[in-house]
Each structure stands twice: as C-alpha cells, then as structure tokens.
C-alpha cells in the first residue's frame, strides 16, 4: 500500500515540477514585450555604441586636417601582434635641421587584438578607439588601413 502511495506521490511531484517549468516558458510566451533581441540593420540609426567601445584604432584629425602623431614608434613597439607599422620621412625644417615626420601610420585591423596598449602608451595621445564595428569586407587587403589622412600634418601645440 505504501508503495502504491509513493508511486502516486512520485507522479504528482513529477507533474508539478514539469508544470513549474512550463509556467516560466508560458509566462514569457504571453508577454512578448520582454523580447530582448534587437532588429539590427533596421536600428542602425538609433544604435549607439558605448563611448569606450573598442571598434578599431583611429587617429583623430582636427578641422585643419592635423593630427598629433609624431611618428615616435612607441605604439609599434608596444603592439604585441605587429599590427602597427610606421613609415617616417626625414625632412628639413625651418631651422635647417632634419626632422622626422610621419609618412604613413599603417594599421592592420586583421591582426589587431584590441588590447589597447598602443592607445594607452602613446605619449602624445594621437591614437584613440573608434566606434565603427562593421568591419566585414570581401578583400582582406582592405583591412590594412592608413590612419593618417593624406595631406595631414602634425599639430604643433600637441608637443607642449
């Protein structure tokens, strides 16, 4: 008799535990307002990444097309993956001495691990993280970027 009682109790316990689970999924089924996913390409206009989001490395330029990079090469040295290459030119300056200025700041996005060491160690704050995250391209050569814009020059007051 006791066995039969246990058998029946077991069944009821099982059913109630199953019902508890079904209540949870049922609750979400009847409240579609709780949907958390986003319709991504449609919400592009309102989608705003966090301000510190590490999308890519950029070199901010001001309105005069001037940047702060002196071409010192510290970012290149600190990058663990070799994703930064710096090509410099030596040009004579006003005083008649040769000065090193940056020719190309090459950034290989395909190799970057976003560790942030280049941005952190840059002595003149020339680098920053950009919010762009749609990096998909058909040709991986496009992932190699030149960060300084053509014709840009060094912002002098940055040296202070």
């Amino acid at each position: 008799m006791n066995m039969i009682f246990n058998y029946i109790r077991e069944i009821f316990r099982a059913i109630s535990s199953l019902w508890a689970g079904m209540r949870i999924t049922g609750k979400y089924f009847v409240s579609p307002g709780q949907i958390v996913t986003q319709k991504y390409p449609e919400n592009r206009a309102t989608l705003k990444m966090q301000e510190r989001f590490k999308g890519e490395i950029i070199m901010p330029h001001d309105e005069n097309n001037q940047h702060r990079c002196t071409g010192c090469g510290i970012c290149e040295m600190n990058c663990p993956n070799g994703s930064i290459e710096i090509l410099t030119n030596r040009v004579p300056n006003a005083d008649g001495k040769t000065e090193r200025i940056i020719d190309k700041h090459i950034y290989h996005l395909s190799m970057c691990t976003f560790c942030g060491l280049c941005v952190k160690t840059c002595p003149s704050d020339a680098l920053a993280f950009g919010q762009e995250f749609e990096h998909a391209v058909f040709d991986r050569k496009k992932l190699t970027k030149v960060l300084n814009q053509p014709g840009s020059s060094l912002k002098k007051e940055a040296k202070q």
Partner: peptide, 10 residues
C-alpha cells in the same frame, strides 16, 4: 515563432 517568443526573441 512560438519558440522565439518563449525565448524572448523575435
């Protein structure tokens, strides 16, 4: 659709 709504998806 049913499973999506149960799982808080579209």
């Amino acid at each position: 659709k049913v499973c999506a709504v149960m799982q808080n998806r579209y």
